[in-house]
Design a protein around this nucleic acid. Structure first.
Lengths: 324, 324
DNA sequence: GTGAAAGCGCTAACAG
DNA sequence: CTGTTAGCGCTTTCAC
């Protein structure tokens, strides 16, 4: 590996001059610049980023932690984040927790060790105290950590309400919603609360079906679907996140229910899978690109030491499909 | 930020002693060790990984490049890679090309600049010559780059053959296959070739329908589905990758065809979406976890300077579903 | 405009 | 067993 010294020697200038040339800084005479560029060419020189990192004490890498990269929502989120952060010249390091419980701890550790410049937390399960000592850039996506760490998320209240209104308008009177575990740190849970409230306001009761924690496999969602129809044959509407609604739709089909006449569906998230089956599933769509763009902006602001809002909320949109 | 010197000063030992303690190397007296640990505790000292990186000239980060993180296949692949590489103490940096054409160039650049220790290339479009100067660890996943860069992929020939046999056995006589653009660098294309050959061997002709390059949106796949049925109403079997088969299945349903009586489907890849709709789609499954485990092993071997096989092929499996 | 020199924080020889 | 020292490769004052 040729170093900056080798280049300097060959070009007969000082290392600092070479540095100025590669970074396009300061004033370098045309003559010197040319000699340096020639030497770089000849030696096939590439600057060592590690040395730069050490000097600047930063890597331009942002860590992202999510439950599962393979989940359609998080896959799309990561994809959008990569693009958004690229504009600020940051790369991403991805960690998922679903198969690696200690990933969260590790990524915070990497932040402390200066390996990454900031963290976007798309999931969170560790003790909140862990974060009390961390005074570095963290943005929480849809997860409440503590009141020092800014939060960004969709307007879940609006989402839940919109879903309820849509179901009511379609004539649904016996809705069931499939929720994750209720958890104070998950801001997303609030769409289920809002859903219930809006229905109650209209004199409609909703059945709550609670799933196990941190389960993302289609196999599990299919079990849930069977269980839902076994236990609650009377329902005429189902609300839940994309994957479980897909599973329920399949189960309804098996039971020869007419959709949407006998039973209606609304999915929360609106990822591509709601548009990839027999039906376009009516969905409350989280605007992933927008969320990612704002999240990127926020973490970059934090890194630059700017103040940011503590709780950024972005609107959801209803996408009408065939199921409600 | 406390540095190793600060710790040494407080503990009244030399920096090197502190280094030995943090790395659990060499022999340190209990007394010194205790003093050091106390000082670390007191100062809230965390070692700076950047300095280590510079010294070791490595980061323990592997770059991964894929067309699209949000694509179910690549999402699952990345997820599995993360887990597999974790066992070797590597983290991953993800880049996708579909929205960022220069991502490939950049990641190679990062490799040259020592920012990452190796690359797993899940896609490839640049001029092959770019790689002629690169003498660092690269593993090609399903993409032929040059004969110096080892390749790992599923047994696509077996896959195509298996698909053909399955369709034939099910009674299909007018199959159509939906392919990507034929491209010499894509080892995956060979399953389409094998599919055709196996059918020919049985006296059956196949219609080839070619899609546009690098299109991964469900919207596009749905257009393709419509087009396929418009142009070739006579077909009784469709073979293609997961997403486009899902789209065709939906279109067949709209046209009130009976599945599998009137028309059969086999999907190539077998990601979760083949199990998330009304039907379990009969699929040729690429064993993503296995592929990822072998890919991880291979890149780590390269980094350690070991020899690796030039072309690693892993079996696919048939998963019977309801569509064939 | 350019060069010499200090230093980012850590590690590994090598003395003692 | 522990301290001194010399880098890893780059950037950045600050003289000249």
């Amino acid at each position: 590996m040729a170093s900056i010294r080798d280049v300097a020697k060959l070009a007969q200038v000082a290392p600092s001059t070479v540095s100025l040339v590669i970074n396009n800084k300061g004033y370098v005479s045309e003559n010197a610049r040319k000699k340096v560029l020639d030497a770089i060419e000849k030696l096939n020189y590439v600057p060592n980023e590690l040395a730069r990192n050490l000097f600047r004490n930063s890597t331009n890498i942002i860590g992202i932690i999510v439950p599962d990269v393979a989940h359609p929502f998080f896959g799309a989120f990561i994809s959008a984040l990569e693009i958004a952060l690229y504009k600020y010249n940051y790369k991403i390091m991805v960690c998922s927790t679903v198969e690696r419980k200690n990933a969260e701890h590790e990524i915070v550790d990497m932040l402390q060790r200066q390996m990454i410049d900031g963290i976007i937390m798309g999931c969170h399960s560790l003790e909140v105290e862990l974060y009390d000592n961390v005074n570095k850039p963290i943005v929480a996506f849809d997860r409440i950590i503590n009141n020092r760490i800014p939060l960004i998320h969709s307007d879940h209240k609006q989402g839940g309400k919109l879903a309820a209104q849509t179901l009511i308008k379609a004539g649904c009177r016996h809705p069931l919603q499939i929720t994750g575990i209720k958890n104070a740190s998950m801001s997303a849970y609030s769409h289920h609360v809002a859903f219930k409230e809006e229905l109650a306001k209209n004199g409609i009761d909703v059945i709550n079906y609670e799933m196990k924690w941190n389960q993302f496999s289609m196999k599990y969602f299919k079990q849930v679907a069977v269980d839902v129809f076994e236990k609650y044959p009377e329902i005429d509407g189902i609300y839940g996140s994309d994957m479980v609604v897909c599973a329920c739709l399949g189960e309804a089909h098996k039971r020869k229910l007419n959709i949407p006449e006998n039973i209606k569906f609304i999915a929360y998230d609106g990822t591509f899978i709601t548009e990839s089956g027999f039906y376009n599933i009516t969905s409350i769509v989280q605007q992933i690109d927008l969320l990612a763009a704002e999240t990127a902006k926020m973490i970059v602001s934090l890194i630059k030491g700017k103040k940011v809002v503590k709780d950024k909320i972005l609107p959801v949109v209803l996408r009408k499909g065939d199921t409600c």
